[in-house]
């Protein structure tokens, strides 16, 4: 047979061609797109967000987040039903106060889901597998933080939305309700960012999920209980000006102060002492500093967890 000179490429049996033949039979190389760091970060974000509600995981892991989500929404549904049937001219609860009133449920959610997000990767030492890929610790931390904050936002904003829809169905004043709704959404957004940051730092300190849960519950409740008690004492001793300042020392009262100062809320503190704009501004600064500090701690935590 004449050598076919029109066929491009090396003759059969030549080094590279022979190697290619072997690859075709068994192993296939991937020559499609590689979407890089941004895509990997978004994938981690969506996987973590789904995981925060148990999607893509076992049926058992959906139970807790779903129950808490239901518990969070149920009072809103009841409030709306009552408002519609008794023809109230305003909702019995403010948009900004709803999350504060149900803070126990939110704290339980953070305690249950923050460890799911980060403790598993630490306990099973999966973290090095992430960091041997295009993403680095900033991507990992922002994806995990973003996912938990979004999950918390869904938990806290949906009931606010239910209240708003209910208020409109009850034919309450549209402008007033829309303003209140917007303020409520901003308030829960800030709360979600703050609680996600705090929850993740505590969860990332321990690979043991149980410790993480206990520690988060402690951090959510002990400062709140202490702050509330001190606020009550301050108010009783004719010192109402001190009340908003004391509120700077627990995450939920911090958020309450911001809502009351800037978002038209009534403070859920003894005597309903209205904070001045100055205290409100400081509360904003403290919140920003706490979130930034928690993220810095998380980045520090993962510097060593590399390989």
């Amino acid at each position: 047979m004449q050598p076919d000179t029109t066929t491009p490429g090396p003759a059969p049996g030549a080094g590279p061609a022979a190697a290619d033949v072997i690859h075709d039979i068994g192993y296939r190389h991937y020559d499609g797109p590689r979407l890089g760091r941004g895509y990997a970060r978004r994938s981690l974000y969506s996987q973590s967000l789904r995981g925060a509600y148990g999607f893509g995981r076992s049926a058992k892991s959906k139970v807790m987040p779903m129950i808490l989500f239901g518990v969070m929404c149920l009072p809103a549904v009841i409030i709306v039903a009552v408002a519609i049937f008794t023809k109230q001219n305003e909702l019995p609860v403010e948009y900004t106060a709803y999350a504060v009133n149900l803070q126990m449920v939110i704290a339980l959610y953070v305690a249950a889901q923050a460890p799911v997000s980060v403790s598993r990767d630490l306990r099973f030492k999966t973290v090095p597998l992430y960091f041997s890929r295009p993403i680095d610790r900033i991507d990992y931390v922002t994806a995990k933080f973003g996912a938990l904050a979004t999950a918390l936002f869904a938990l806290t904003a949906v009931p606010v939305l239910i209240l708003y829809v209910g208020a409109l169905l009850a034919k309450l004043d549209f402008t007033e309700q829309t303003k209140g709704f917007a303020q409520g959404i901003v308030s829960v957004a800030v709360l979600s960012l703050l609680l996600a940051a705090i929850g993740l730092v505590i969860a990332a300190l321990t690979p043991r999920r149980g410790f993480g849960i206990a520690a988060i519950i402690a951090v959510m409740f002990i400062p709140y209980t202490a702050v509330s008690a001190v606020q009550a004492i301050a108010y009783d001793q004719q010192n109402p000006d001190a009340v908003p300042w004391i509120g700077l020392f627990s995450p939920t009262t911090l958020n309450d102060t911001i809502s009351a100062a800037f978002l038209g809320g009534t403070p859920s503190v003894p005597g309903q002492v209205d904070p001045s704009k100055g205290v409100g501004a400081i509360a904003v600064l403290v919140t920003v500093a706490l979130i930034a500090g928690c993220i810095a701690l998380l980045l520090r935590r993962y510097r060593k967890a590399g390989l």
Partner: peptide, 17 residues
């Protein structure tokens, strides 16, 4: 980052959930 896109790494220790 570009290197880690083109290489694979199998650690010595357990790393599987």
């Amino acid at each position: 980052s570009a290197i880690r896109e083109r290489v694979g790494y199998m650690p010595e220790h357990d790393c599987l959930p």
